[in-house]
Design a protein around this nucleic acid. Structure first.
Lengths: 206, 206
DNA sequence: CTCCTTTTTCGACCATCGGTCGATTTTATA
DNA sequence: TATAAAATCGACCGATGGTCGAAAAAGGAG
């Protein structure tokens, strides 16, 4: 038989997929164990509770993304590319932006919040380090780098994961990022590209 | 007997208190009807579902706060006082910052999100109007006022409703607010007072 | 191989929760 | 007073997360 850890990883992967496609709240333990072909007792042999399992799933997700981001940081790219790369690494994948998942976002608030929190903790230090590098190169000019990065991440998360943002929002966000980091006006327009990947309700027409 | 609307208001008030003290998810319909001394059928005579009731509770909360805020806006105060007054009106009251509530914040994500969303919709136009006034008086100098106010509210909400913020966070936030609105550096330090009301984990000495 | 311990698996069972529904009582109305 | 409408009741339901004691596998030790 599977030797414990293997089975746990298998269960995590199954739950990961189901949580992403159907949402955490809408995925029952019964469904998970049915998909895995195990009994309930087995499930609770590996996990204390459904919520604790969610935490492990998130840890797994973010851990992988953080690894990619760290490689970017330690690469030879220039600062702008590093920042873009790190942000891309933590970007929700296409799977995660399924219609299903987007629609049930509201009732999926618990998972959404936990992911956000964990993602912030992982992304801030990496982006801060990249920003420090930018500081040294004169691209940015500011103190309290981690705090500033934190603010940017908060706004980015909150503003762009819904579909309720306009082009004006994006423009103001970039303006804010530049001023917050002490960058030259217009020098961070490249952020537009990152956001543009998601569907964006145009402020003017529609 | 009570004539319908009265009873509904009574139920809303009871639920309001329980949601604040115990959290939405941790308050069962059974507990509400026990507190109110009615049967389950009566409850569902007035509300389609527990979640729909939550929406009405929130509407009630925000509605009252918005009324106060609007009075401030239409008063003769100067701009700074108006801004402070409006923000104070939408501030969580002491009841809402109970230990109980703060601790269960995570598992209370659904209610928390809905409140945030509704609060934003109510507060943005009022604060934007005040900011426009500041623009006219030369205190601020910026375009896209509603968008900028929106960003500030997002950050303020996300940053200060947890207890994980430091003095540096506050300083950077104020710096950002000034730059975002085009205010003179240091001219918005008065915001510190508002935030100081909440307990704040000091960045340096724990 | 045998005996014993440990790990893993099983599934019946449970309490709680949000919600339904037909019956019944109360209130308003003509 | 008869009748319709509004309001109340509580037994009941299906789904859900979680428990528990027993049984099967796996792993040595002699």
């Amino acid at each position: 038989m599977k030797k414990g850890e293997k089975r746990k990883q298998e269960l995590l992967k199954i739950a990961y997929k189901m949580f992403l496609t159907k949402g955490y709240e809408n995925t029952s333990v019964d469904e998970i164990i049915e998909e895995a072909g195990i009994a309930k007792g087995t499930y609770y042999y590996y996990f204390e509770s459904k919520e604790q399992m969610l935490e492990e799933v998130i840890e797994m997700m973010i851990g992988q993304e953080a690894e990619v981001a760290r490689q970017v940081l330690n690469s030879g790219m220039d600062v702008v590319q590093k920042i873009l790369g790190i942000m891309a690494a933590f970007r929700p994948t296409q799977e995660e932006t399924t219609i299903e998942n987007a629609l049930h976002q509201q009732e999926n608030a618990l998972m959404h919040n936990k992911v956000k929190k964990r993602l912030m903790a992982a992304a801030i230090p990496l982006l801060a380090e990249a920003a420090e590098e930018g500081n040294r190169q004169g691209i940015f000019c500011c103190d309290h780098v981690p705090e500033r990065v934190k603010l940017l991440l908060i706004v980015g998360n909150e503003l762009f994961d819904e579909e309720n943002f306009t082009e004006s929002d994006v423009a103001v966000f970039i303006d804010m990022a530049e001023k917050l980091l002490g960058a030259k006006a217009g020098s961070m327009d490249y952020i537009k590209g990152l956001i543009g990947q998601t569907r964006c309700k145009n402020g003017e027409k529609e």
